[in-house]
């Protein structure tokens, strides 16, 4: 008789793995990907593919070079690639997309210890770096239907900030996404669908997205702005559903998530209404990422110790 396996309990294992979670996120991102191809044409598919490919490849090569365990196949790099692509304009030069992806994976993720260890969201941080480095191409917004022939047009938020009434799309256009902006952020419908899928699958909880969006809505109302316009435009929904819910860089507790959402909402409003930039979602999430360890510490769940021993 062969030797029996001896291991510590439990001897049953749940079916969910890192890979299945990442697969769920990819599935949730697919509607937005499809929408981006419909809205901006086939070049958006190219940008998404380049970002995914570069992310996976740079993770693989970095881990090989550093003689670390290769986890490039756990699909997390695919998620980062998709999210980064969703944060870029369709006309972005391919080499810039490649550089952005490498930055996201190697600088933001791997140098801090890889999956689960990075303190900032790779896609968001890479986007911010790219916005600083390539401010021209990162703010050239193509009107839908024009393909790669970049015809610059203001995003809905820029239009609103400058008071260009004619350039402000209708609610319906905002909801369906047929306007200028980043690849994956324009179609609110697709993002909401993805978000609902993630909540149903138990990958994320509703707290962060709902609190984040609600804070933005409330503050817009208080500031006398068009509430629905503020909620539907810019990267708010994409950020709230997919980036502010990243496991490693946001709090895990219920109240931590609420605090995180409120913080993101307030910073977004500050930047949108009083800042120099038309959009503040990326910065708000990055700033809250930095505060996450403190929020986690303050909202840590208390063990059930019960009353005093009699």
């Amino acid at each position: 008789m062969s030797k029996l396996i001896s291991s510590v309990s439990p001897h049953f294992y749940g079916k969910r793995t890192t890979q299945t979670i990442m697969l769920d996120v990819i599935i949730a991102l697919l509607p937005a990907a499809v929408a981006s191809v419909i809205i901006f044409g086939l070049r958006s598919l190219l940008v998404i593919a380049v970002c995914i490919g570069t992310c996976v490849l740079s993770e693989f090569l970095f881990q090989k070079l550093c003689k670390r365990e290769v986890t490039a196949m756990d699909l997390s790099a695919v998620v980062t690639g998709m999210l980064l692509a969703f944060n870029l304009p369709v006309s972005i030069p391919i080499w810039q997309a490649v550089l952005g992806s490498v930055t996201a994976i190697i600088v933001v993720k791997q140098l801090f210890g890889g999956i689960g260890q990075n303190f900032a969201n790779p896609a968001i941080t890479a986007r911010i770096i790219m916005m600083t480095a390539f401010s021209g191409s990162m703010t050239t917004w193509t009107m839908p239907g024009n393909g790669a022939d970049a015809v610059s047009s203001p995003t809905p938020l820029a239009a609103a900030a400058k008071g260009l009434k004619d350039a402000m799309p209708s609610y319906q256009t905002l909801f369906l996404g047929n306007h200028g902006g980043c690849l994956g952020e324009t179609c609110a419908l697709a993002i909401i669908l993805g978000g609902i899928y993630l909540v149903i699958r138990g990958v994320i909880t509703w707290h962060t997205p709902v609190v984040y969006v609600a804070t933005v809505a409330l503050m817009s109302f208080i500031c006398g702005k068009d509430v629905l316009y503020q909620v539907l435009s810019g990267g708010l929904l994409l950020g709230a559903v997919f980036m502010a819910t990243d496991y490693a860089t946001t709090p895990n507790t219920k109240w931590g998530k609420v605090v995180f959402g409120v913080g993101c909402g307030l910073i977004t409003i500050l930047i949108r209404f009083w800042g120099n930039l038309p959009e503040g979602v990326s910065f708000s999430i990055l700033i809250m990422n930095i505060l996450t360890p403190y929020i986690s510490k303050l909202t840590r769940s208390k063990p059930l110790v019960g009353g005093a021993k009699k």
């Binding site: 294992y13 890192t18 979670i21 999956i115 496991y247 895990n252 059930l304």
Partner: peptide
């Protein structure tokens, strides 16, 4: 047992512990 992979800080262990 399935292979152990790096912790992704999802917090599921905390949110499923009966004693928190």
């Amino acid at each position: 047992p399935p292979k152990t992979t790096p912790c992704i800080s999802c917090g599921a262990c905390v949110s499923h512990c009966p004693f928190r």
